[in-house]
C-alpha cells in the first residue's frame, strides 16, 4: 500500500464524513426535509466501496452512534443500519466498482433499502411508526450517487487514495 506515504489522503475521508455530518444537521423547511438525501449513509457506502481497508463496519458503526446522539434518536439504531450498509458494500466492493454507473446506482439503492428495512423493523419492535416521508429520502440519496462518485474520484486522484 504505497499510498500510506502520501499525507493529504489521510484527511480526505474524515473531512468528507465531517462535512456530511454537518450538512445533514442543518435545518431545512419541514416540507423539504422529507426529500433531503442521507449524506452520511452515502459517504459510508462510497468509502466502504472505494477504500474498504480504511472504512469498514467499525467506522460506520461509530459514525452511526454519533448521528444517533446528535439527532436525539434511539442510540444504536443508525449505528446498526450504517454498519449493515458498510458490510454489504465490503462484501461486494470488487464487483460493484467495475459496474457501469447506472448499475452502481441500483446497487446503492438496494443497500439503502436494506438499511431502511432494518430501521423500520427496529422501529416496529419499539412501537414507533416510521414518520411520513420515511422512504422519500431514497430517491434524492440515490440521485446524489453520480455526483458524489464523480467529485470524490477527482479529489481522490489528487489525494492519491486507493484501496
Amino acid at each position: 500500500m504505497n499510498d500510506w506515504a502520501t499525507r493529504r489522503d489521510v484527511w480526505l475521508i474524515p473531512v468528507t464524513f465531517l462535512a456530511a455530518l454537518i450538512i445533514d444537521r442543518m435545518a431545512v423547511p419541514a416540507s423539504l426535509a422529507v426529500f433531503r438525501p442521507d449524506l452520511v449513509a452515502i459517504m459510508v457506502v462510497y468509502w466502504s466501496l472505494m477504500a474498504p481497508h480504511r472504512v469498514g463496519v467499525t467506522v460506520a458503526w461509530v459514525l452511526g452512534l454519533l448521528v444517533d446522539v446528535a439527532t436525539g434518536g434511539l442510540m444504536g439504531l443508525t449505528a446498526a443500519v450504517l454498519s449493515l450498509q458498510a458490510y454489504g458494500c465490503l462484501l461486494c466492493h470488487q464487483q460493484v466498482r467495475v459496474l457501469p454507473r447506472f448499475q452502481q446506482m441500483l446497487f446503492v439503492l438496494i443497500i439503502l433499502v436494506v438499511g431502511k428495512l432494518l430501521a423500520a423493523a427496529v422501529l416496529g419492535v419499539i412501537g414507533r411508526l416510521p414518520p411520513p416521508g420515511f422512504w422519500l429520502t431514497l430517491p434524492a440519496t440515490v440521485l446524489l450517487w453520480p455526483i458524489v462518485e464523480e467529485t470524490l474520484r477527482r479529489w481522490r486522484k489528487e489525494a492519491a487514495i486507493s484501496s
Binding site: M26, A27, V28, V34, A70, G72, G73, R128, P130, P131
Partner: peptide, 9 residues
C-alpha cells in the same frame, strides 16, 4: 437551536 433532529421523535 435550528438543527435537524431524528424525525421519528
Amino acid at each position: 437551536v435550528q438543527v435537524s433532529l431524528d424525525p421519528h421523535i
